[in-house]
Design a protein around this nucleic acid. Sequence first.
DNA 1: TACCTAGTGATATAACGTATCAATAGATAG
DNA 2: CTATCTATTGATACGTTATATCACTAGGTA
Lengths: 154, 154
Amino acid sequence: MSRYLEMRRATLPTAVAELAEQLAEAGYKVTGPRLAVLQAASAHRGAFSVQELEQWLVARNESPGIASIFRTVRLLCDLQLLQRIHGLEECHRYSLGTGHSHHLVCTVCGAMERFDNCGVQSLVQQLEQRTGFQISAHLVELFGLCPRCRATAG
Amino acid sequence: MSRYLEMRRATLPTAVAELAEQLAEAGYKVTGPRLAVLQAASAHRGAFSVQELEQWLVARNESPGIASIFRTVRLLCDLQLLQRIHGLEECHRYSLGTGHSHHLVCTVCGAMERFDNCGVQSLVQQLEQRTGFQISAHLVELFGLCPRCRATAG
DNA sequence: TACCTAGTGATATAACGTATCAATAGATAG
DNA sequence: CTATCTATTGATACGTTATATCACTAGGTA
């Protein structure tokens, strides 16, 4: 394990330490700015934007430069430790979590549920036959009101 | 019908004239810049970006200011005459077409097929029961190689 | 035809993100 | 433990996409 991570591990939530280990295993250095971004990300339950991470970090006087926050987010996306969430109007939110998945996002408060099986396989087959395309990726995201906002909004 | 549209109608492709009429019916003025954008949009078969519209218009010395191109694109989106296409990495492309639909986009050349029935109804019901969310919108976009690029790429 | 106001163009501004590059800090060898 | 090497950082310039502002223009209507 990285020396720096070993030194800081006791002060870190388990989830953050595990993510940091995955960084190290992938050959990336575990640095202060990267740990800070991991902490910020794991402090947000649902979907978050880079700006929200920055605000959280600034409020705790732990903020790396904005460029490093973007770089870390990008790195985590590349390593599939972070998922980009696509919205109807914007595509600038992220959520911690491994591998391929989809999101059901509350349009009021940003609360989020992940789900894996999106059931587009038969649609994909059908369209491949009809159009001759070879389909290699898909985007499925759902939007609505979470139970809490549903209650509040009436 | 608008006087200006009546005057120019003979010079316009049918599809453009029909879109212009829908603008007029919705209470918007049919203007030179708006007609120019409609012509540019209908000249592009598949998905296009605002920059591509601008280049097409500049090449024909018919380009309105970039602000008006953006404004018109936005207006057409609001009126559901234009659809925003959400990509895996970017969401800055558009396609002409009415109402709710989805897109199958070639990741190499941008060719596009629209489809209406995305078959997420049962997924939506299932998730509403499981999560308590009230789902009101969805995003379903597919990506792959079109027949032509598939042939070229081997 | 004249008038009113929606619409336009030029440009400033904003949001989101990447490129550059000198300085720094984490990892490794000795 | 220290020196060294290079990945990483921060500051900032830049790029792209898009909206806000505001004086001016042109399309619709009486």
